[in-house]
Nucleic acid binder design. Structure first.
Length: 307
DNA sequence: TCGCGTCATGAAGACTATCT
DNA sequence: AGATAGTCTTCATGACGCGA
């Protein structure tokens, strides 16, 4: 079973740093259940234990107290628009309620606050997180930084292709971690521990240094190319497929959708033999451009152009 | 050179996970 | 449950740079 979850960015950003590490992980696990089961569900202690990848043992009391911790941890929202109305101020916590039915000690009845999730969804974007990886973290610095890294991983930036970058002030990081460090060096010690752990667990190396002038920590990392074999700009693919279908001798195609999907896959994997011929044709006839202006002989790739 | 703010560092003690 | 190793927080201290 693969426990991939999409954790909302706001949930990643939420000031959950004040919660203990296991409670933070528990939120991730509960969010997975929420996606799977809806707002209310019953879950066994054993299943939660497995989701948290804890060793076998009795965790009933421990998990119960953490559920209470999350239940009591409220977050403030300002100016949110919910289905129930517009609020200038709104306070809620992730767990709406949880209970243990008499005679069913090993089951929790949990109700997640839909309004809370809805309030979070005011913001854009989701961060895909792998619960199995998240659960390997032993330090909250590692976990919080990893969540941040995954969130910002492919964000475009000015540093040129292949590099991801994000800067955070000491105040930002104190909020993320739930700490009150007064100096960069103090917080850097935690960052270093966290980044070291990320490298150990995922093999991904993230660089971090303190920029004295701007008074921010700058995190940077190498972005792997998403489609290393693709030779034309990604955003031109659909346009090119249409061009190809319109300028190719009539094909007998039973499902145009499936045909397009397969063609796209071939283009991305660079298995489409007529790519150069037809892409050059499109450049020439549709845009009056010569491929020599946009074709890099060394890499065999076409760079993008205006229009 | 004095005062000021900023900072790095060590140390102490609290906390946590894990093993037996 | 107790021991232990590692993590985390906080504080005191002194260094550093900068402008007056």
């Amino acid at each position: 079973m693969k426990n991939n979850i999409k954790k909302h960015n706001a949930l990643t950003d939420a000031k959950t740093g004040k919660l203990s590490l296991r409670s933070d992980k528990l939120i991730n696990a509960l969010y997975l259940l929420y996606i799977r089961e809806g707002e209310s569900f019953k879950v066994s202690v054993t299943e939660l234990r497995d989701l948290l990848e804890l060793k076998s043992g009795k965790y009933g009391d421990d998990i119960a107290s953490r559920l209470k911790e999350i239940r009591d941890y409220s977050i403030e929202f300002k100016n949110v628009k919910l289905s129930s109305g517009n609020y200038s101020y709104f306070v809620d916590s992730f767990i709406h309620s949880f209970g243990i039915e008499r005679g069913a000690r090993n089951f929790y009845e949990i109700s997640i606050s839909g309004k809370f999730i809805e309030a979070f969804k005011q913001k854009m974007g989701y961060t895909p997180l792998d619960l199995e990886i998240c659960n390997k973290f032993k330090t909250k610095y590692g976990l919080k930084l990893y969540e941040m890294y995954k969130r910002y991983y492919s964000l475009p930036n000015n540093e040129g292709k292949g590099v991801g970058k994000i800067s955070k002030s000491r105040e930002d990081l104190n909020e993320i971690f739930g700490t009150i460090y007064k100096t960069p060096s103090e917080i850097k010690r935690g960052i270093d521990r966290g980044l070291k752990e990320i490298e150990k667990i995922t093999g991904e190396f993230i660089n971090c240094f303190y920029h004295k002038g701007e008074r921010v920590f700058i995190f940077s990392w190498h972005q792997k190319e998403k489609y290393p074999k693709l030779r034309i700009p990604y955003k031109r693919i659909d346009e090119f497929i249409d061009w190809y279908l319109n300028h190719h001798e009539k094909l007998k195609i039973s499902s145009i959708l499936k045909y397009k999907q397969e063609l796209k896959r071939k283009i991305i994997e660079d298995e489409f033999n007529e790519l150069d011929k037809f892409y050059r044709g499109m450049l020439q006839w549709k845009y009056k451009l010569l491929p020599s202006e946009y074709f890099d002989v060394e890499s065999g790739k076409y760079s993008d152009f205006k229009n």
